[in-house]
Amino acid sequence: MNDAIAIDAKGLTKRFGSLTAVDDVKLQIPEAAIYGFLGPNGSGKSTTIRMLCGLLTPSAGEVEVLGFRVPGQAEEVKLHIGYMTQKFSLYEDLTVEENLRFLAAVYDLPRSDLKQRIDRALEQYWLTEQRKQFAGTMSGGQKQRLALAGATLHRPRLLILDEPTSAVDPQSRRDFWDILFELVEQGTTVLVSTHYMDEAERCHNLAILDRGRLVAEGRPRDLVRDIAAGVVEIETDSPKQARERLEATEGVHSVAQLGTRLHALTDKTIADPAELIRQALKDADIDSEVENVVANLEDVFVAATRLNDQEGSRADAA
């Protein structure tokens, strides 16, 4: 890893009519690392990515990708980007090999080692047996590997992946991430969007997007450490009542269910959050086990979006 910047964006904004899909986003994406966009559907991940690729013109803001200004020099950038769209976008009525050959011609890759290059890609992405299969008839995981093979065939310096694992089983997801780490090791910069927490955790850097705004940014570890709230884990047999009770408790910002447990976020000024919760539940005669815990990314996400809510409503009131 080094300090060079692959993507530098300031004030990046995209409006569709009255909707602001991306709102004043500032990004500094370092080279040779995995940078993640985490956010729910509609938070503006795809729109941001499309602006970075030069596919959409920003309503405002400045973007520099690999030293080229976008959209002005978008055509030059395109030689160095590999882009995997959210929806499978290779040709379903062409075979795996035909798709790759087509891309090779489009990128004008040298003909001399074309066969080896394609063979190697097929091998690397476990597609050798599917060589003659129509892309449209493959499984979600196979399609995803084909898309990645296509996006990396020209050995791009920057790989942009828009929710690459949304149609894929857990094992394929793990395999997929192994490949990403290999690519990063070889010096590729990877930008990946996701709404899975476990994937977000594996990124070197993370940006959390919520309704078009960048609400938190940093290394996952730092984000978890610096969370601006107390985090309390509650185990109880009556989670519904506990939740209602806590939501009405002064100093508790939010309560979310994580599996069988509840996570409560409390105001950061409270010295012993667990004590506050324990007391509140005891008052309501709810049996529970309560302890202060280290935050996870989900907590970070909830805390960040809650802050965004408050700012939003403050802005609405003004």
Binding site: C53, G54, L55, E75, K78, L79, I81, Y83, T85, K87, S89, L90, Y91, L103, V106, Y107, D108, G150
Partner: peptide
């Protein structure tokens, strides 16, 4: 398909 095609050169 076009979204991919127009990100190529």
């Amino acid at each position: 398909n076009l979204e991919l095609l127009i990100t190529t050169p």
